[in-house]
């Protein structure tokens, strides 16, 4: 049987025989700070992780699985009275259940919203756009946005570029970390660890197309149960994402621990990485070239013999100035 180019599910047990990685340099469609990237020879099927917020029970099995698979060691923190733990995404915690207690003004019911936060694997990734280091951030044709740590210089530009506030810079090795969408598993036919660990199948993985179909069924179900605004969060402002949510209140994503309503790469970042760079380089180039040309072609401003004599005379004329 032909091996599909990406795993179609996280549920199935993976093949056990050794496998060549299926995500290589030749599958890159974007590479940070690189203008001349050769187009990939093939187009991998786009994959996506779908997180159904309505099915999540907040057990954090996904967080544990992520720690386990990526072999990270998030610090043990103090309980500050909320379930969210650790307090934020960190360089050792790529995904985080964010808990929100929200009173629905229409029903006066308390709703406990639990959102699995982490990298959205944007089709138009702001992190990659901001990164100054060639090849520190790459995007594969299956949609995964990955950080290549050998090339990372720890500048934190990706943090400013990301519309979702995801990357974190390690205080230990000064490199940026975030969810990889388990690119190292996907490359060898396995679904993401978090999706595999999820006991309620709130996290599922597959081709982006399949995930959208699955989301449609879930949304129809939610609507039939009174959630009129249920919908899919696949924000067009970043050309869609490869981690999507089914939200029961898709009309107001912000209630889910500040999930942006209309995420897009900030215009400030666009200006910094766009017009500032080109106009700035032109300015500096003109200043340098202009000076050089004037230096070669123009006449320098030289002190003449007369100037020297006039100065002597001025000082002579003031004999009191000589001690």
């Amino acid at each position: 049987m032909m091996r599909p180019d990406s795993p179609r599910t996280a549920a199935a047990n993976p093949p056990v025989q050794p496998m060549e990685t299926n995500l290589t340099e030749r599958d890159l469609i974007r590479r940070s700070a690189t203008s001349s990237l050769p187009p990939p020879e093939r187009q991998l099927t786009e994959v996506a992780k779908l997180i159904d917020v309505s099915k999540c029970i907040g057990c954090k099995a996904c967080q544990s699985a992520c720690i386990e698979w990526n072999d990270t060691n998030p610090a043990i923190e103090e309980n500050v009275g909320v379930y969210t733990n650790p307090h934020d995404l960190t360089a050792d915690m790529y995904t985080l259940m964010r808990f929100t207690e929200w009173v629905n003004p229409e029903t006066d019911n308390l709703e406990w919203l639990i959102r699995k936060d982490g990298c959205m694997h944007c089709s138009d990734p702001g992190c990659l756009k901001a990164c100054p280091s060639p090849g520190a951030i790459v995007q594969y044709s299956n949609g995964i946005v990955d950080f290549v740590h050998e090339n990372c210089i720890g500048c934190g530009y990706c943090v400013k570029g990301c519309p979702f506030n995801i990357p974190r810079i390690s205080k230990v090795d000064h490199k940026a970390y975030k969810c990889t969408l388990c690119s190292d598993r996907v490359a060898v036919g396995q679904g993401p660890a978090c999706a595999k660990a999820c006991p309620t199948k709130a996290i599922v993985f597959g081709t982006k197309e399949d995930m959208k179909k699955h989301a449609d069924e879930r949304i129809a179900d939610l609507k039939s149960r009174g959630y009129a605004n249920a919908g899919l969060y696949d924000p067009p402002g970043v050309s869609g994402t490869h981690v999507m949510y089914v939200l029961h209140h898709n009309d107001k994503p912000h209630i889910y621990a500040d999930l942006p309503d209309n995420p897009r790469i900030s215009p400030v970042v666009e200006t910094w990485k766009g017009v500032t760079k080109y106009v700035g380089l032109a300015f500096m180039g003109v200043a340098a070239a202009g000076s050089l040309l004037h230096g070669i072609l123009g006449r320098p401003n030289r002190v003449t013999e007369e100037d020297e004599e006039a100065a002597e005379e001025l000082v002579e004329r003031k004999p009191e100035a000589r001690v």
Binding site: Y157, K160, V268, T271, W272, T276, K277, V279, G280, F283, M284, A287, A288, S291, H294, G295, G298, P300, N301, R302, V303
Partner: peptide, 27 residues
């Protein structure tokens, strides 16, 4: 970061002007 990069471009231009004026004005 935007302000930093704009100011940096400008200061490099001022720097070029400063150095060149010092060279052009011999002595």
């Amino acid at each position: 970061i935007l302000a930093h990069s704009v100011a940096a471009v400008l200061i490099i231009c001022v720097f070029i002007l400063h150095v060149y004026a010092g060279i052009w004005t011999r002595g």
